[in-house]
């Protein structure tokens, strides 16, 4: 099976543009929408990587759940309007060159290293995934449920209005 690299370039360009847009928008709601777009595009990357299950989960978790959570939080709070510096930290100018240089250097090093990669796609079928997730990694999976429990508890603890007793 021979894939053309063109779809990858299109999708990854979309990912990067949406990511930058997300950071750039002053209006939070636009940022959130860019984020949704970005996550959708990433789901596309997963499909290219032969990981449909992950792509599906990506759509469900990021595009649906987390984005809605973020949008709710945005709507629960009021936001100010103003010039650029009200939204961007002044140090962002200082950090930019560092991030760019480090990003380029690390990208170059990590993306030119000689990995011992195979020629064919290796991601297993979904049944195998299920076996891995619920058998081999059953213990961390259970612990993950505790992580989510703590998160729910934390959200309630911090955000819920106190019942007067």
């Amino acid at each position: 099976m021979e894939f053309s690299p063109i779809p990858f370039y299109i999708v990854s360009a979309l990912v990067i543009i949406c990511a930058i847009a997300m950071i750039y928008f002053k209006e939070l709601i636009y940022s959130a929408l860019s984020m949704v777009a970005c996550f959708m595009a990433i789901a596309g990357i997963y499909i290219l990587l032969n990981a449909e299950l992950v792509a599906g989960a990506q759509v469900l978790i990021y595009v649906a759940a987390i984005s809605i959570l973020v949008i709710f939080a945005i709507m629960l709070t009021r936001h100010r309007k103003g010039d650029f510096w009200l939204f961007f930290h002044r140090q962002s100018v200082v950090t930019l060159p560092f991030v760019v240089v480090a990003g380029i250097v690390l990208t170059v090093v990590l993306a030119t290293a000689a990995y011992d990669s195979s020629e064919e796609a290796l991601n297993p079928p979904d049944e195998e995934m299920a076996r891995l997730l619920f058998q081999d990694y059953s213990f961390p999976f259970e612990v993950l449920s505790l992580v989510l429990l703590v998160a729910i508890m934390g959200a309630i603890l911090l955000a819920m209005r106190e019942r007067r007793r």
Binding site: V143, L146, V150, A151, M153, G154
Partner: peptide, 19 residues
């Protein structure tokens, strides 16, 4: 003795400590 277990344990600890 496994990266994933370690990671999940770490995050359980981390989230609880933030709270």
């Amino acid at each position: 003795i496994d990266l994933i277990t370690f990671f999940v344990g770490l995050e359980l600890m981390a989230l609880s400590t933030y709270l």
